[in-house]
Design a protein around this nucleic acid. Structure first.
Lengths: 243, 243
DNA sequence: GGAAAGTGGATCCGGATCAGACCTTTACGG
DNA sequence: CCGTAAAGGTCTGATCCGGATCCACTTTCC
């Protein structure tokens, strides 16, 4: 067993220290917040000075990132007091490549992301169910559940993202919530491109409902099981596209 | 529910883009590989030029990091052909603060890390048990299991780290393995500082054995359960230290 | 109407970092 | 014994990036 000197015990220990330069990472971070619906269309980003400080990035770099997303049509800036940078309401986005192509392009990272998600999300659901949630957390779960039943695809995807993130956060572990947000972003494009069949939607709604009610009634086993089924269902859809 | 504008759905979306400068991160990365035993004492790091390329860091920065760890007594460099940078055999390390102090210093990140680990590791164990492992993977598991039964504390910790990482890797998801390596590092100091009681060691050995045999015999449920018990046991020990 | 405040927009400087070439030391092979 | 190879050690100029400062625009308040 001559260990490959680039790894040890199979762990890629010499992976890159930084995933790109400050500009690229900042763009990715802003895009994440927008695409996952964490900042809804029409809402305003924090002022540049404040946001730059929170991201630990110079204002110059932040402005470059904002500029790039503005040119890409995601953001709009207005000057003056009560100005700011706003998330643009997206157009009908008819230029989306089909899911099968996207899935193929992801290569080995797709099964990786699916496996990772399959570990994280059921774990978070079980954790959430085993904690006593605050009233705010409970009502968030319910309201996002409602949004995720929406039929309009755009609203639905945002609601779905937010619901899953709310469950992750309800688990009480920031690291876990962060990991789920990351893996969700990796799958987001793909999930958004899944052909929507009435049957699938109903199935998904049903699973969401069972997950949330298991969490609210404090049943970790049921929450984990329901979330596992939910993950398996979407994974199945995606794998099916690869034929 | 006036959402705090720094978060959305409780997800800390404007967290810092980079966790420190290149130098600091590089030091941390090298320290991780050393402390988790991924590069054993006496072994050589890859040549600087090669390592710098893999870490996507300039050779200057890498050398600064190596220099810092050399001064801290972790590394040693030799020039000339067949020279290189070597991991030093650690001294008896008598200057370790006690676990209770360390645990208190971690503050809220301790329960976070424990919860996260409690999700990741059982998930990885179950995943590993559900896959058909290569002969190399199987033999790695067995040999690290043996090492983890060692009584010498230093050898034992390294063996334990490697065993857990090997299980993580056997799950087949690089992202998952990476996450486990990260969370393990966060807990490493603490685990190394736990007072060793004969009874605890035997218990831990037994759990490790059950986990590995469940994985090797392809029983995901048993693997998950055994790993959950194992995580709960060490978490209990740590929480106990906080009184 | 005018001043103050709060926002995005633009520019400059210094330190951190990078890429590359070159030097020094050591071991191996003819 | 000497030349070459492989490693760490050193230097330099270009580039990235953060901190600071000032400008331009719009709203709010007196």
């Amino acid at each position: 067993m001559p260990a490959d000197s680039h790894e040890a015990a199979g762990v890629p220990m010499w992976r890159p220290v930084r995933g790109g330069n400050a500009f690229e990472i900042t763009v990715a971070r802003l895009a994440q917040a927008i695409k996952l619906g964490l900042v809804a269309p029409g809402e305003r980003l924090p002022p540049e000075r404040e946001l730059a400080e929170k991201l630990r990035v110079s204002r110059v770099t932040l402005r470059q990132a904002i500029g790039a997303l503005r040119e890409a049509g995601y953001l709009e800036s207005r000057r003056g007091r009560s100005g700011g940078t706003f998330v643009v309401h997206p157009g009908p986005a008819a230029d989306r490549p089909d899911a099968a192509t996207l899935a193929r392009e992801m290569g080995e990272t797709l099964p990786d992301a699916l496996d990772f998600r399959r570990v994280l999300e059921p774990g978070a659901a079980a954790l959430a169910a085993s904690r006593t949630l605050s009233a705010a957390e409970r009502s968030r779960l319910v309201s996002y559940l409602t949004a995720s039943r929406e039929r309009d695809p755009a609203v639905r995807r945002t609601g779905d993202s937010r619901l899953h993130l709310a469950i992750a956060v309800a688990g009480g572990s920031p690291s876990l919530a962060q990991a789920i947000a990351d893996v969700q972003l990796r799958l987001d494009q793909l999930l958004a491109a899944i052909p929507v069949l009435r049957r699938n939607l109903d199935h998904s709604d049903d699973q969401h409902t069972r997950i949330v009610s298991a969490i609210l009634s404090g049943d970790p086993v049921a929450a984990r099981t329901a979330m596992e089924e939910h993950c398996d269902a979407t994974a199945e859809l995606l794998r099916g596209l690869l034929g």
